[in-house]
Simulated assay, not measured.
Amino acid sequence: MFLSLQPVRDTREKQVQLWKELIIDYCRTQKLFVIGLEEDFPLFSNPVIERSLTHEAREAFLSALVSEAGRAEWLDKGHKKCLILWHRIQDWADIILGFVKDNGLEDSVITVEEMRSGIECRGTELHGIDRTILMRALRLLEQKGKLAIFKGTSADDEGVKFSM
């Protein structure tokens, strides 16, 4: 039942809800941010029983996540890659603020890359965060006056000055 789309509406709605939760939880625990519809994704197949989700089912479950505001979005017009937001952008912004406070970085400058892979972020949810998600959360905080983003000569040396 779990690997094929259910024809009965009530059953399918429950199935879709379960899949949405499973995808979000799996991506959170595995720190995955992008699912390729055409790529091999562990949740979508079971080699032991030699079964996997159809393309239609994969797209249906990911589209259901996309339709739920702030949980996922297609990265391309052809719906081949899906950005999974196991935290909404506002929640990522709150995580960043917590990180800044916990590490005493108020009124400090840090590079965007340090926020993703620096020593301070190890063991936090920010470690390895998708750059697109991080930049969107930082821009949200910038709009709220919590920080300023400074352009560098390359994406690797973009800086952030917190003012909290």
Rank of each mutant, 00 (worst) to 15 (best):
H55L: 02
I129Y: 07
I133V: 07
A137Q: 11
M115P: 05
K146P: 02
F41K: 03
W74E: 10
R131S: 10
F99Q: 01
E39A: 02
R71N: 05
G104Y: 10
E120V: 05
P47I: 08
H79S: 13
W92P: 07
K80V: 15
P47E: 07
H55A: 13
L140P: 04
S108P: 03
R71D: 03
P47N: 03
V48S: 09
R51W: 05
T54Q: 00
R139K: 14
L75V: 00
A137P: 15
D91S: 13
I49P: 00
I119W: 15
D94L: 14
G98A: 14
V112A: 12
E113W: 14
L134H: 04
L85I: 09
H87K: 09
E142Y: 05
C82N: 05
L138Q: 00
L65T: 10
S52A: 10
W86P: 00
A148F: 01
L140F: 13
A69E: 15
R51M: 04
F61C: 03
F99T: 03
E73G: 07
L43M: 09
R136I: 03
L105V: 10
W74Q: 01
D91N: 14
T124D: 02
E113S: 12
P42Y: 01
S108W: 14
L134R: 05
A69H: 07
E120Y: 08
G145A: 11
L43R: 03
R58Y: 06
I129L: 07
E114Y: 11
L126T: 04
F44E: 00
E68W: 06
E114Q: 13
G123L: 06
S63T: 12
L147V: 06
K81M: 15
I96N: 11
E125Y: 11
M115E: 00
F99V: 00
L134F: 00
D94Q: 15
A137N: 11
D130A: 05
I96G: 01
G128Q: 02
I96A: 05
L62W: 02
S45M: 07
R88D: 08
G104Q: 07
D94C: 14
N46Y: 04
K77E: 03
L75H: 04
S63K: 08
R58T: 00
H87N: 13
E114F: 09
G123A: 08
G123H: 07
L43Y: 04
K80E: 14
P42V: 06
L134K: 12
L65G: 06
K81I: 04
F99W: 13
R51A: 14
G98W: 08
D102Y: 09
D94H: 11
L83D: 06
E50N: 14
G78C: 06
G145I: 01
T132C: 02
D102M: 15
A148Y: 01
A64K: 04
G145D: 10
I89T: 13
G128V: 15
N103C: 06
V100C: 12
H79P: 10
R116E: 01
F99R: 10
R51C: 11
I49M: 01
E106V: 09
I95T: 14
L43T: 11
G128Y: 10
K80M: 11
D107C: 15
E106A: 13
F61K: 05
K77D: 07
R51L: 13
R122K: 12
E73N: 08
L62N: 01
R88Q: 15
A69C: 12
S117F: 00
